[in-house]
């Protein structure tokens, strides 16, 4: 089976920062807004290079979303930066009315998503943001898996006309996708070919899915791992084609199983080709303080959980 190499662990948020830095040089309409988290969002370079196009809004996320919506009038392409929690739940109505319903070209860029935020605990660990954002009509929802992909997605978003949510995280995680990748919004990426089970993973769980596939391979189970970096629009075709071959699926995400990628997959399958599915995600719970690894282990969001789910779902075929 095809294997992937970690070329050196990096945080996905740094991929966002690098993408934004590049956009600053290549697209003069790109502007960036931040709500008092420049360092956390890795927006320092953009700010230093383009102070006139950088807007520090203070701890005022609602205003930041409205400002961004207003800046699109006149042709700017605003990228907002704060934690995922404050990028979504806190400003849902602002995004809904001023961005999504108004069809504004705002890119809502959200770091520290999910449990891997770690020690700050449940107040900051949003596990509901994918659901919140995918429910908004006309909103694109992307959850990237590593540094390279986050950088590529950031750059791709500037060329995409319309509201979008880009979700990434805090910790250093394996960097394994190509540096020069062409990020296609809405196009799933098949990472391994398999015949026994389809593993559809997003965000930090993609690397875990590859680790799981290796272990499964050793046990004689052939897993097809697909990176669903775009949760909306979902690549229905890629999912259906894979499941037609394998007959069962595991969805894996650092998010509540209610409202996340898994439910989107289940909708597609139940409409077109019902198949057994297991859901790796948080089970309708809040997080808590702890290290990233401890939390992912406690809440069952790692390779081990994906292996168990795969073995279980194969038996249900």
């Amino acid at each position: 089976m095809k294997t992937y190499t970690n070329t050196g662990s990096k945080d996905t948020r740094s991929g966002f920062g690098a993408g934004l830095t590049e956009l600053g040089q290549t697209n003069e309409n790109v502007v960036a807004l931040c709500a008092d988290l420049i360092g956390s969002l890795k927006m320092d370079d953009f700010k230093a290079n383009h102070p006139e196009r950088f807007f520090q809004v203070g701890i005022a996320e609602a205003n930041m979303i409205g400002l961004a919506a207003g800046m699109t009038i006149g042709g700017k392409i605003p990228f907002t930066g704060t934690f995922a929690n404050f990028s979504t739940g806190r400003v849902y109505d602002q995004i809904r009315q001023s961005v999504a319903y108004s069809g504004k070209n705002v890119k809502i860029c959200a770091s520290h998503a999910g449990l891997t935020l770690g020690e700050d605990g449940a107040t900051h660990q949003i596990l509901e943001d994918i659901g919140l954002m995918k429910m908004l009509p006309e909103m694109t929802v992307i959850n990237t898996c590593d540094y390279n992909q986050t950088k590529a997605a950031t750059i791709a978003l500037a060329k995409h006309d319309g509201p979008a949510y880009l979700r990434f995280g805090r910790p250093k995680v394996p960097n394994f996708t190509p540096e020069d990748q062409n990020f296609e919004i809405g196009k799933a990426v098949q990472l391994t070919e398999g015949t026994d089970v389809t593993i559809l993973a997003t965000g930090h769980l993609v690397w875990e899915a590859l680790e799981a596939a290796k272990s499964l391979h050793e046990k004689g189970i052939s897993a097809e791992v697909i990176n669903i970096h775009t949760i909306k629009p979902l690549d229905d075709k890629a999912i259906l084609e894979s499941v037609a071959k394998t007959g069962c699926v595991v969805s894996a995400e650092e998010h509540n199983v209610i409202g996340g990628l898994g439910e989107s997959v289940a909708r597609v399958l139940s409409q077109h080709k019902p198949a057994p599915q297991e859901f790796v995600g948080t089970q309708d719970t809040f997080g808590e303080s702890g290290t990233s690894d401890q939390l992912m282990d406690k809440y069952g969001l790692n390779a081990k959980a994906i292996i168990n789910a795969s073995e279980k779902v194969i038996k249900r075929k």
Binding site: L67, A69, G70, I73, P78, Q97, S98, Y101, S102
Partner: peptide, 21 residues
């Protein structure tokens, strides 16, 4: 140029447009 009705959002939007100008 913008949807409005859910109150309190217009200052931010207008300010953004002013910055864009």
């Amino acid at each position: 140029r913008i949807a409005s009705g859910s109150l309190g959002q217009g200052f931010s939007v207008a300010l953004g447009a002013a910055q864009s100008k």
